[in-house]
Design a protein around this nucleic acid. Structure first.
Lengths: 209, 209
DNA sequence: ATTAACTCGAACATCAGTGTTCAACAAGAG
DNA sequence: CTCTTGTTGAACACTGATGTTCGAGTTAAT
């Protein structure tokens, strides 16, 4: 059991929690996810209120802010992994990149700024680890595309990954600000990234999807 | 006189400040710029310390955190304008875009996250105004390029501007994190943006500079 | 050299967010 | 129904950051 440190499921020793409690824990987790995804500085008060629960109740289930953030982050990472592990990164690199972007979009759109909250609350260990995993996935694909000549070789892979993350985050922010429709997100990111990755002197492909 | 609200130069009525004072004010302004550009949450304490000055002295010159941020932001905007107003946005749109990026780079690299600090301290009025000015410059160029067929027309200009800002900011962050050399910044941004703006089916141009 | 402007550290008041404690009360499990 | 588990608001202690005040010591101007 590597549940970070905080308790939430069952105490160190004791019988299963009451139905009431399980319901509230779920509500808190959901509320925290939404609040922190929107604003990484969200108050414990705001989270409790959004969950329709008293602040004391929240502290009854999560020792501290850090514990809560850790729980939320853990759940988010689990879902992110489960979504991303099924993506086929093989075949035409250009098509694979679009698939990766499509899958990443859903996750990023839901969990938005949660990473920032995690970076502040957690001593940057599991965070770095998780972040590295995310990057590694994209890195492998981009590197393969470079070797096959599908992607430009004159820019370091790390920079391409950075741009991908940056553009994705920008799209999420734009949606949050009402400047972009959520459904247009993937197309915008794909269009941009297909341009970025096209080799100099190459022809920019049409986004498909 | 639209000096926002805070005093710093001369009191409401009185003779010119002492040499000593002017020196310190300059040091504080410089330190604040550097600190806030690195971390928008920088403490007044950190700023004072970086300026080699006591906290009380700082408050003697700037009424509040907001006043200080406003002063720093004002100065930054002034320099940004003075740098950007000379840029020739005419001629070949592709070349003009690279010139714009080059000029923007210097400014962004120096003032980094200062915008964030301003957004939090100032009630989002002059900030929005200034931000809009910055965007307008890029918008005009990109729109012209779209009309002339140099830039892709199938993406809204606002999205292209967003990507430009996003990528620029990402480059600055990368430099701060030691993942990128400062001198490589403009080339990386240009390469990326030239790809982004190239019309579908068009050939990605080689960055020059 | 005298004076007014300035600096500085220490101490204080304030404020917001975090956690904790308590005692009354509500609700699930048997 | 009863007993245990949970919930709740109010009140409290604690922390870190912001501003303020004071008095003693410096420093620039004239």
């Amino acid at each position: 059991m590597t549940t970070t440190t905080g308790q939430a499921t069952g105490a160190t020793e004791g019988r299963p929690p009451r139905a009431d409690a399980r319901r509230n824990i779920a509500a808190i987790l959901d509320a925290a996810t939404e609040c922190l995804a929107r604003d990484p500085d969200a108050t414990i008060n705001q989270v409790a209120q959004a969950a329709g629960v008293g602040r004391v109740t929240l502290y009854g289930h999560f020792d501290s802010r850090a514990t809560l953030v850790a729980a939320v982050a853990e759940r988010a990472m689990a879902e992110a992994d489960s979504v991303l592990k099924d993506i086929d990164l093989g075949g035409d690199p250009v098509a694979a990149l679009q698939r990766l972007i499509g899958a990443t979009w859903a996750v990023t759109h839901r969990y938005g700024a949660l990473v920032v909250a995690a970076e502040r609350a957690l001593p940057s260990e599991q965070v770095d680890q998780a972040h590295a995993d995310l990057r590694a996935r994209a890195e492998r694909l981009l590197k393969r595309g470079q070797r096959s000549g599908a992607f430009r070789k004159d820019l370091p892979v790390s920079w391409l990954v950075t741009v991908l993350h940056s553009v994705t985050h920008a799209a999420v922010t734009a949606v949050h600000a009402g400047e972009l429709e959520a459904e247009d997100g993937p197309r915008m990111i794909c269009a941009a990234m297909l341009g970025v990755t096209t080799p100099t002197g190459g022809v920019v492909p049409e986004p498909s999807g």
